[in-house]
Amino acid sequence: MARAKKNPAESVSAPPVRKTRPIPERTGPVRRMTSALGTPSAKKPSSSAAAPGQPAAQAPSQETNAVSSAPASGESNPNILPLVKMGQELAEQAIERARRSSGETASPIADSLGVSNLPGAKDALSLAETALRTWVELATQVMRVVLPLGPQLLPDATKIVDSIRDAFRGKSGGEGSPGIHVSLNLKGAGPVRVSVQVNPGISPTDISVQPLFSLDRSSTKPPIHGASIAAGRDGRSLEVTLSLSPTQPHGRYLGAIYDTASGNVVGGLTVEITG
């Protein structure tokens, strides 16, 4: 057999071209969304033909007898991510509005109580702002849940935010009330700073206080159980009794004051053990 003639172009060997890996779209998992929302289902291939980067034969469709006929658990709306993103943006706007309004809402409370310059006033403002922000973020979570169900629910979700804010403003931003005399009966060692905030118009005979929990977010400090609040002999003033264990760790503690008849929170008792 005659040997095939070499193409002259082949006689000069070109230097081999070294191939390189493609630049990766990312180098690790993205858990930001899955932590809160779970893993979105992978998109179904649109046809049997393979698309770049997405092999169509991923599913073991050939072995149909082995593939469960169980219904897909969690078939999700393919538009979930844009919707949630929109929801988050809306929520951020709502939080920002709430943040601004929280000062407006909380300041009158402090002013009306005449406690703006008292120790603990900042706690009251902080508490009010925290409460608002918590509710707004709760609304954010609600939106995250409801958004995948359909954009038609959006108005309702934003209404939640407004209604919470309005309710809060309406409830606590009232016409003000005369100050209430508070007396303190302190048992236990060590310097402490105590402040009491209550809503105007409360009935001192119907209130009580929860155990006081540490405000240190990551704290394992035990709560203070030895706090009580009751009406004074005149029925209009308040008597706060605080019994502290000598081993109670330093720090700030807060307990909710609530109306025993309605169950509503009507104020807060803040104790700072400074040592």
């Binding site: 932590s35 893993t39 289902s41 179904k44 991923q58 469709s61 593939v67 658990s73 078939e75």
Partner: peptide
């Protein structure tokens, strides 16, 4: 539990931490 491990990827929904 329902299903068979290795069911098509598009049918698998994993949980969020909350779930």
């Amino acid at each position: 539990a329902p299903g068979l491990p290795g069911d098509p990827a598009e049918t698998v929904k994993l949980f969020s931490v909350r779930e």
